[in-house]
Amino acid sequence: MSAALIIEQVLNGFQLGVMLFLMAAGLTLAFGVMGLINLAHGSLYMTGAFVCAWVANATGSFWTGLALGLLASAAAGAIIEILVMRRLYDRDHLDQVLATFSLILIFAEGAHWLFGSRPLYLNIPDLLDGAIALPGGGGYPVYRLAVIGVGLVVAIGLFLLITRTRLGMRIRAGESDREMIGALGVNIRTLYTLVFALGAMLAGLAGVLVGASQSVQVGMGEPVLILAFVVIVIGGIGSIKGALVASVLVGLVDTLGRAFAPSLLALALPVQAAASVGASVASILIYLLMAVVLAFRPQGLFPTHG
């Protein structure tokens, strides 16, 4: 097991982590600020990827696709906030789960209807194609490094937005006391729409970035959604800082588990069994992590008040 392999796997873990952060940020904001459980977050992720792939194929430009993909997912977010979510804020979580689950089905069938049933083609832009040498040999795809960079920039941007701007102050105020901020004359409805659209746009960004290196197909959002929920539970529901730390934690545990669990098990088991058992162990590691975190910190790593 060379140092280069370990460095590469750690980078892979980071990359998965920042990807998850983009998804988890919107989910945790929606829950923290509006008290909303949004299962349809994966559909917004899918929207970003589908629109980007479609536009990129039509115009030949990934960047135009990216811009329109972000716009489309933010717009889809704003529209479902106004049409559906608004009616759910005062209801209990079960109603929210039911309504947003139905949105998943509507988005999935809508995508079938608009884009067909076959997966769409979307490749990474030429600018980011290629690999750079890692210390100790082996190349690492430039695209994955760029994804890590984008994730970090978004994380810093969100942090500044929430701690340093008027909008961020209102978001924080909305988290602590909804009635009071409304009474102080802030238009809470617009604020909610904005926050929701922002979360949707980040999900769309994740969808585009992932879609370009993975696959753009109906149902692509749901597996990521499950991981994103694990992230926000570990990080503390409603906390952006928690979402960031937990995303990177989950990304690293998942990737390093997949990479090294079979070979570690092979020290004790026959190779055949180790491959099969290792795969199973690797797939439950993040849930074990969640269980351990919840056992010691039931509110998550960075609990928000309330």
Binding site: T255, R258, Q272
Partner: peptide
């Protein structure tokens, strides 16, 4: 080498690194 991945897995960075190694 022989790796069993998760059903529905989308990120194969770890597996590709193992193939390279």
């Amino acid at each position: 080498g022989e790796i069993f991945t998760q059903l529905g897995q989308q990120d194969y960075a770890a597996e590709i690194a193992a193939i390279r190694a």
